[in-house]
Write a protein that binds this DNA or RNA. Sequence first.
DNA 1: TTGTAGGCGTTATCAT
DNA 2: ATGATAACGCCTACAA
Lengths: 340, 340
Amino acid sequence: MRNQPHKPTSADIARLAGVSRSTVSRVVNGYENVPEGTRKRINAVIERCGYYPSVSGQTLRGKRARCICVFSGVDGMRDETRAAMLLAFSKSAQALGYMTLSGPEGDYGAADSRRTVREVLCCGCVDAGVFLSASGGETLLRQLLAEGQTIGVIGTPADGGGRLFTVEPDPRAAREAAEYAFSLGYRRALVLGSTRSCPGGDALPERFIGIAREIGLDIERTQLTDSLSARRAADAALSRRDGARLLICLDQEAVFAAYRAAWAQGLAVGRDLSVLGIGLLSPDLPLWPPLTAFRADAQELADSLARRLIGSLEGEAEVLHHERIPCVRLEGGSCARGTA
Amino acid sequence: MRNQPHKPTSADIARLAGVSRSTVSRVVNGYENVPEGTRKRINAVIERCGYYPSVSGQTLRGKRARCICVFSGVDGMRDETRAAMLLAFSKSAQALGYMTLSGPEGDYGAADSRRTVREVLCCGCVDAGVFLSASGGETLLRQLLAEGQTIGVIGTPADGGGRLFTVEPDPRAAREAAEYAFSLGYRRALVLGSTRSCPGGDALPERFIGIAREIGLDIERTQLTDSLSARRAADAALSRRDGARLLICLDQEAVFAAYRAAWAQGLAVGRDLSVLGIGLLSPDLPLWPPLTAFRADAQELADSLARRLIGSLEGEAEVLHHERIPCVRLEGGSCARGTA
DNA sequence: TTGTAGGCGTTATCAT
DNA sequence: ATGATAACGCCTACAA
């Protein structure tokens, strides 16, 4: 049906170069014991024919597929964040010579998505799976680890299984952020956004809330995940005379909700109220004034995970299982001194 | 090294079920001529062992890999847009039972990225390639088509090759948009953003500019791609007394630049000036007032392409090679009647 | 209805 | 330094 002009195989190359398939294989895989002349001749033929070794053949024979599947789950992470993490990881992996498969979405708890995940991981076309917003403690992930799968997780690790690699934004930024908020002079704050919407889990925001309360900030929080409710919560707070004038935003959507609500109420961000971001936020949100935030970078998270995960696949012995990516204080103009 | 508890193969299943491998294969592939009893027994064993057929074995034997690679090129498309399209296509493909590989970035014109593209497409782990922001007329794509590859393109098609499938935002929206802009009362406009930054190519914006000039709008344009220059251009226009008060934005970044510039100049969008979006924009940009735009939806583009591309792979005879996705007028509050 | 056998493309091992 | 061979897991034509 298809008019494929016959993709060349190592046998074709061997015939044209007047050698055996083994020698072709040796050249392709960079073995030493092939004389320069032969090597050159074979490479020329390979180049001329456009020969690319079949990955199926290779993996069947036991080689790695050099491919990692990214599963993104469904727990309230915004498509935007999901897409950004996917692309970031894809870039990191690519730089290390691995391809990235975009896994299906789905609740890791549901039977059918578990089946799909297993299918991808077990069919042999993938060397490892990366789960955004997980801990490694989920039943599915535990099982997969027990079966010898290599798993990467962006989130707070539940326990350090053998082939589990994790990365998270450093939760130590929580204290810094809480103290910063306090130092602005506020005694009340509204937390916008779901603690689940941020890859890296809820460790950072939960810790922030805990510490903030400890040091004397009265924290009001919304657990609502959709953007509409974030907007409504911000609106409500800002329209009340006695509402909080410090808005802590856990994700991009929350930040936008805060700015929009301020605008709608005729309040100036950075003057009449303060907006502080925490977590995985883009460094270049289109906002004015720019956002002040304690942020971790998606690409850095991805880089750390990819480097260690792939290192382990490639047989490196000493690989860190967990890494925390520091949250950097990004100074915008969105925070002002407050009095309540 | 790895402690893989031996992944079961069809031979294992056969042994445990007391049949031959062929029978297992028949059951797995849903052949009719297997008695219900045998089928049930085999399925039970498969379930119990967690058997998943090896994709390598299957493709080696001639089956499809059920996987498509998405290449995103480098021509000025923002990471954000790139990520959104990747995720959108991944979803569409997933719904049709195909996985998506994130291809490497790179200029399709450069020798080394061409090599990488070929490598992925020819190594047998992928049934087709999708190129964001291309036309199918590029040298590389022509060659691939000539070699019998199946190619998908989000963009304006150069010519309808046999196995080339394309989708683009309907450029007919250009006239509508131009007339709308004219009807607002403006006689001058500034076009922000690069015509290359939008998947779907430059057909729509170029056409818009042509028609707008025809019907009497004086169009000033910036060809600069990076966000800083878009912002500068918007700033410059708005700060001049006689600058354009209608900003046409071709991508998300341009929209943000326009809003930010307005804010910085103390002008109110939708009152003192108008912002009109055209092209592939998110329906839910965090802006106030919401954006008025003629927009095409990323997911719709992806759906159309995936459906036809995969249909063709699956052997459907009658498949449209090109489709235009209508641009829908999204009414925000960002446009006001103007006088210049 | 079921089993046998051959081959898809590659590479490790052994023999030369 | 190089070639022959077997095996990876699967599918299917053919035989029984």
